[in-house]
Amino acid sequence: MDKWQDNRAWFLVLPVFVIVAFSALIPLMTVVNYSVQDIFGPGETVFVGTEWFKQMLGDYRLHDALLRQFLFSGLVLLIEIPLGILIALAMPKKGWGVSTSLVILALPLLIPWNVIGTIWIIFTRPDIGLFGVGINSLNLLDPPFDHTATPLYAWITVMLMEVWHWTPLVALLAYAGLRAIPEAYYQAARIDGASPWATFWYIQLPKMRGVLTIAVLLRWMDSFLIYAEPYVLTGGGPGNSTTFLSIYLVKIALQQFDLGPGAAFSLIYFLIVLLFSFIFYQALQRVGKGEKG
């Protein structure tokens, strides 16, 4: 669809620009301000240039947290996107099953994030949790399952929680994409004698490109910024094994009150998320270009 060329459209965008800029630019300026100053008290600040950036870039705990974060977000995308598509394909296309499925799928998405952590503590504790007690009664694991005991168990628990929590969002988006495919495409595929796999690969997947772009971007951003759920569930432990970037950041900025390093940290953090989101955005736009979507 050709769009009209008219710069007066800015008048329609202006209110959004103002309200978002109010919440985004002013705090961002504050953060930039902090990141180049040492603050002793109200009115007592010294300009320190790139000192905090150097300190944070050389901080090995930051490197560890960053690696952990990449591993986590990578696993999230690898598991949740295919699983979400699979669920969307299995969902009913009409009848009462549609709204029932949507309601069940949306349920985990509507729970406050710290409550998610609470649910999974209650669910996985080895003494009172269904999962903890259930898996230990099989006597397969040595040492027995306890989400606070070893880094591996902590990771498994956090991953289970994350997949449980967010796969429904991917499924909902993928389902929306599937429903948008006109019936005529399927009829054409049937006449050509296309296998279900071919139908999926040449019709359904390319048609889902738009919604999958949204799904990948949202899951990348939100998993990279994850805070409340693992904080409540593991507190970043055992040791530092589940200390993701946000948990480390809050520790520096709000608990130790190191505003300068914290601000430098958050700018670096922001740029990483931005860079990768831009790459994903461009890549996914390009992937769809070849196939008429």
């Binding site: 961002l28 805070y227 809050v250 709000l254 940290f265």
Partner: peptide, 19 residues
């Protein structure tokens, strides 16, 4: 507009409080 979803809420919290 979309980048504003990517800002780490953790440290924006403090400037927000001051603002």
């Amino acid at each position: 507009l979309l980048t504003n979803r990517m800002a780490p809420a953790a440290v924006f919290a403090l400037p927000f409080f001051q603002l």
